[in-house]
Design a protein around this nucleic acid. Structure first.
Lengths: 241, 241
DNA sequence: CGTCTGGTTGATACGACTCAAATTTGGTGG
DNA sequence: CCACCAAATTTGAGTCGTATCAACCAGACG
């Protein structure tokens, strides 16, 4: 498991080798530390190899919103280095293993490799689509639907990179994190999670999520999976076969 | 005024001619009609030449969220044609004049024109940054702050493309639109707008917005303009001078 | 062990929603 | 130019979802 790109594109052996090479420069970040902070000058593309991270924005009154989450295989902003400064921070939820990729390395990686280029594009577009879905989530869904939706999304995303099966996956977010991601308070998140459990939709303890009835959970949270764009030709295929 | 790109990049005469050529294929859309609908196959990049549009998502229970707004000069999804289907719709707020640009024309436009390529990238990244800011807006700001923030953002965006000055601009959104964009009800939007007027922050009638005290409005809505990334070298410069 | 972080519970408050109706505005056709 | 109609705005009363504040509990850790 190097990246999520494989879930999308039919990569050739050469593509894989190139990817491999470019992810050699790795770094570890402790849980709850920032990978990069608002105001910093972006210098690398990050690829999450292991662990979870959150992109968040803070307000002068101390409020904080997690605007997106990164799970293993996710790239952080393939082209941010075009911008002068970060308008948000990225913090590690768990201890994190990331690859640092310089702009130059990105060019080398994509130059003459249309499959990788396409796959990176797809990744970017899906990331944006997720951001839009979160906007919908915060604007229109109730607390119950909102949390249900988030759990489904994360479960599915983890599943596409082989980090979830049979309804189970690691789930390192605290109720506080969930509150920051859903625009609710931690107290309310706690109560809604209890409802979800009471309704036999999920189990969640010790950082382990068990989705008991995915279909029903998707239903009650009005989950429409079109926004994840998993319908691509390349899924589970291989350019060499 | 062809595009917003000029506000960012120092374009050469050749760049401008190329842009001009690629925006010849125009089309008009009536107000309140869809430019493209969820489920459609995206075939063109759209460039809004005149009028306003909204990107929105709907839920099975009938709720609707405007997830972003387009004003003159905005591109709709420079690379969506990579995805199979639209996961949202784009509807015209006013009568709309748009340019249709095919993927091929986009390649021709960017091929060998690094300034345009860079500028398009910048536009995409700012669009995404705005989407993140909306997530923050919906998740953490009060109704009063939320509306104030949206008004400031639109005013500033219009100003960078020369469609606003002295605090004044066209503002074709109905209170219903504002409700769909802010995740509030139209009734509540109405009441909050009255508060904003009472506080001498804005005037708003007959589709005309007048921001009476931009600085204070930015203050009360905790507006941090870093996310619009207006700090680029190219602003108001010209590659030929 | 004490301390800390994360989770749980209870009581109360308030911001935003709902529903319903009145009023104003803007467009259309006679 | 006026009469009419639909759309948009405004107002009021009552309700509800979520926030707030304050404890308390459990497990992890040094």
């Amino acid at each position: 498991m190097a990246t999520k790109l494989e879930a999308f594109a039919r990569l050739s052996t050469d593509d894989r080798v190139a990817l491999e090479r470019v992810t050699q420069n790795t770094r570890y970040i402790d849980a709850r530390r920032d990978l990069i902070s608002e105001g910093d000058k972006p210098r690398y593309v990050h690829l999450v190899l292991d662990g979870w991270a959150a992109r968040y924005k803070s307000l002068p009154d101390g409020k904080r919103q997690i605007v997106s989450l990164f799970v293993p295989g996710d790239f952080c902003d393939v082209n941010v280095y075009i911008l002068k400064y970060m308008d948000h921070s990225i913090g590690a939820i768990t201890r994190l293993k990331v690859a640092l990729i310089s702009p130059d390395e990105m060019s080398v990686l994509t130059e003459g490799r249309p499959r990788i280029t396409q796959a990176l594009w797809w990744h970017e577009l899906v990331t944006i689509a997720i951001q839009r879905e979160w906007t919908l989530n915060l604007g229109q869904r109730s607390a119950y639907e909102r949390l249900g939706h988030l759990l489904v999304e994360l479960y599915l995303r983890l599943r596409t990179v082989g980090r979830a099966r049979d309804g189970r996956c690691d789930f390192p977010l605290t109720q506080n994190d969930l509150a920051d991601a859903t625009g609710l308070t931690a107290v309310h998140v706690n109560r809604i999670l209890q409802e979800l459990r009471r309704d036999n939709l999920i189990e969640l303890e010790r950082k382990q999520l068990h989705v008991l009835d995915l279909e029903r959970l998707m239903d009650v949270s009005m989950f429409n999976l079109n926004y994840l764009h998993l319908d691509h030709e390349g899924r589970h295929l291989d350019a060499n076969e």
